[in-house]
Amino acid sequence: MALLGILLFLMIIGAVIAVETRNLLSSIVCLGAIGFLLSIVFLFLGAPDLAITQLVVEILCLVILIRATIHRRVETVAGNREFVGLAVTVVMLAIVLMLAISMMAGFPSLGTSVLDRMAQAPSHFYLLQGKAQTGVTNIVTAILLDFRAYDTLGEATVLFCAVMGALAVLRRSARRRPEEGDAGDEGEGGAE
C-alpha cells in the first residue's frame, strides 16, 4: 500500500506540473507520465486487462497529442486572476471534496472483495459460473463479451460513430489543397 501511495503522489505531482508548466510539450509528457503511472497502479491492484488497455491507449493519445501540438506556438495570456471566479472554484472544490470524503467513509477498505460483503452480488455469479457458462478463463472477457455483450456492442458503436462523425466533419476542408482553396468559401479562418 505504501507503493500505491507513492505512485498516486507521483501522479499528483505530474498533474500539477502538467497544469503549471509553460511548455506545451512538457505538459503533454507529464500527462503521459500520469497515464503510465496509472497503468502501473492498475497492475498492482490486480487488473492486468485494464493496465494493458490504459498503456496502449495512453501511447496512442500521446502520439496524437504530440503530433497535434509540436511546432506550435501557444500564446499565453498573462493577467490578473478573476477573484470571484477563483473564489467560486475554491468553494465548489471544497464542497465536492468534503462530500467525497464523507462518501468514502462508507466504502469497503481497499482490497476487500465485494463477495465478502454481499453474497448475492452479481459478480459472485460471474466468478462462479463464468468458466462453466462461457468456456473462457479470462473472466473479464467473459463479462465483457458474453454477460454484458450488449454494453460492449454499444461501446464499439459509440467509438465508430465518433470517428465517422470526425471523418465527415473534417473531410471537406482537409481535402482541399491550399492553392485550390478559394477565399470566399472559407467559412472559418483561411487555410494556409
Partner: peptide, 15 residues
C-alpha cells in the same frame, strides 16, 4: 484525419 487537419491551439487559424 486529425493529423491531416491539425487542431489549432493558438490564435484560431485552422491549418
Amino acid at each position: 484525419v486529425l493529423s491531416r487537419f491539425r487542431v489549432s491551439l493558438g490564435d484560431g487559424d485552422e491549418t
